[in-house]
Structures are given as C-alpha cells and as structure tokens.
Amino acid sequence: MLKKYWDVIKNYFPLLGFFLVVAFFAITTDGGILRPLSLQSILNSTMTGALVSLGAVFVFGSGNFDMSLGGAICLTAVLGGYAAIATGSILVAFLVCMGVSLALGILKGLFAAFVDVPLFIVTIVLGFILTAIVLVMMGDTVSIYLSEAVTPIRSFTFAEMTTINIVVLGAYFILCLILFNYTPLGRQIKIQGGNPITARQSGINSKKVKLIVFIISAIGVALAAFIILIRVRSVGTATGSSLGMDVLVALVLGGMPLMGGPRSRISAGIIGAATISVLNAGLTMMGLELAVIQISRAIIFLAVVYVASMTYQTKLLTR
C-alpha cells in the first residue's frame, strides 16, 4: 500500500522541484525574480523552450537522442529572417521556418531509421554543421534585423505577443498531448523507447515511428524559431545557441527518462521548460559569472539524472 502511494507521489516530484526552485530564487534574489520584468523574461524563455521540449519528448520517448536542436533553431530562424527581410512578409517567414525545420526533421528521421550509426553522434555532428552553415551564410554579419525588410514588418505589443505565445503553445501542447497519450502512435513510441526488441516482436514499424517523431519535433522547432524571430525582431549566429542543452536539462528536470519508455510524459516538456527558465534567470540575477552558471547547471543536471537512475526500474525486458 505504501509503495502504491509512493509511486503516486513520485509523479509530482518535477512539479515540486519547480516550486522549490522558484522559492529558492525568490529568497536569494530578494523577490527580484518575481518582479514583472523578470516574469516577462521567464515567460518568453519558457514559451520557446516548451515548444522545443514538447517535440523532444517524442524523440527521447522513443529511445532516440537529438543533440542538434540548437543548430536547427539557429538555421531555421536565420533563414526565416532572411525570407522576411527579402519579402517583407511574416507569412513567408513562417512558411520558410516550417519548411526548413521539417526538412531537417525528415533528414534526421531517415538517419535514425536507415543508417546504422549511433544517432546521438549523427546529431552532434549535424549540430556543428548547421552552425557552420549559418556562420558561412552570414559572413561578418553578427545579426540581421526585421527593420531592414523591403517593406515594414509590424512589431507586436507585449499583450499581443503574450496572446500569440499562449495560442501557439496551447495548440501545439494539445496536439502533442493527444498524439502521445491517446493514439496508437503514442503507445508505439513508449514501447519502442522501453524496449526495441519488444517493439519489433509486437509488429511495430520502428522506422516509421522514428521518422514521425522527428517530424513532430521539427514542428516544435519551427514554431520556436518563428516566435523568437517575431518577438526579438533579430536573429543571428547566437540564436538558440544554448537552447539545445537547455531542452535536455529541461526534460530531465521535468521527470523525463532520457532512455524513453513507458514513463515518458508530455508534461515533462512544460514543467521542465519552466524550471530551467527560472533556474537560468535566477542564477543570472544572483550575479554569477557565466562559467559558474554553466557549472551549477551541470551539477544540477547530473544530480537529477543520478536520482532518476536510482529510482527508475523498468518492468520491460533488458535491451
């Protein structure tokens, strides 16, 4: 009986962790993290991080790794920015962002399905290649601005941007929630991530599943890149540079088993993105140097992974 209650309580650990992080930085920053400007910054960071994290749940839930998310966001946003400047159209920019991201997603899905090379190595290399493409494409230019468009592109007020964020994230979250929890695809993803042998013996088309999860993830990347573009109104070589690692840490903080499987939850994307956004903002407001912030994040990441690995016991067959 106690074990049953303990299993239920463990499901709320990520949410409890989020509130503890908020409480800790509310104290250490003398309430600074709860001020309107800080909350606005955290909200913006959470929105873009959650879009990418929600899609990444499908990839990691199926037992795959994608370490190229930062490079994919950078290239997608930059090409979307060039399209917006050349045409003066936000719609064209959106279509370019979606097209570029989907093309990259399909490419990664094909590699995962048909190339017998560890995927995390492929995506690490791909991330470097995408970043290099952006650097070559932009040359000596560090950033490009929507103000340089051939025809003026309207800017959005804070209220309008908040509405766009909520609508876009809400729609994508509902889509991901339905697909992951209430469709055969979601069950196949969890079985595939829990044990590929069981998945194969169950008749699951693993190649199809791998391709689909990367396409779903690519939609989140495209939406995040577009939101960054219209909110900041400038993109460059540093766009999304840390978002790839932030997503990995966010999923762990959100309670996502990095090897995927039946304990994968779509809520990990939302809770984890909110937690890492508060964590980043809090460490910055404490006046810590960048190197110290990175070390602190690494220690927290390792601690959470260690605790999760000690408590996670899969009931499926050994891989």
Rank of each mutant, 00 (worst) to 15 (best):
I90W: 09
F65T: 12
T131D: 13
C74G: 10
L79D: 03
G105V: 10
T141E: 11
G109M: 11
C97A: 13
S147T: 14
C74M: 13
F120Q: 03
V136W: 05
T87P: 00
V59F: 03
M138Y: 00
Y82V: 02
A83H: 02
F94M: 11
G99H: 04
G70E: 06
L69S: 06
L107P: 01
L110H: 03
I133H: 03
L79W: 06
F94R: 02
A77P: 00
D66Q: 07
L107E: 03
I106S: 10
S45F: 02
V52E: 02
F58Y: 12
T46A: 14
F120C: 08
A50L: 06
D140A: 15
N64Y: 05
N64V: 03
L130G: 13
I121H: 08
A56W: 01
E148L: 02
F94V: 01
M98G: 00
G88R: 05
G71K: 11
V96K: 08
L146V: 01
T123C: 09
S68T: 01
D116Q: 13
L130T: 09
S147Y: 03
V142S: 15
G109L: 12
A56V: 03
M98H: 00
A86D: 08
G49N: 15
L102A: 12
A132R: 14
A56G: 00
M47W: 05
C97Y: 06
A132P: 00
M137W: 05
L51G: 07
D140E: 14
V57M: 12
I129N: 09
S143R: 13
S41L: 14
I133F: 12
A103S: 15
G139S: 13
L146M: 08
G63D: 09
I144Q: 08
A113N: 08
I73R: 02
G61F: 11
A83M: 12
Y145P: 01
P118K: 11
Y82F: 14
A112K: 06
L43F: 13
S143M: 07
S53Q: 02
I73E: 03
F128C: 09
T76K: 11
F94H: 04
V136E: 12
N64W: 01
T123S: 10
A103T: 15
G88M: 07
P118C: 11
V122W: 04
F120W: 06
N44Y: 07
P118N: 11
V92A: 14
M138D: 02
G70M: 04
G49E: 06
C74W: 01
A113D: 10
S62W: 04
G88H: 06
T87S: 12
G49A: 14
P118D: 05
D66E: 11
I90S: 15
V122D: 09
A86K: 13
K108F: 04
L75Q: 07
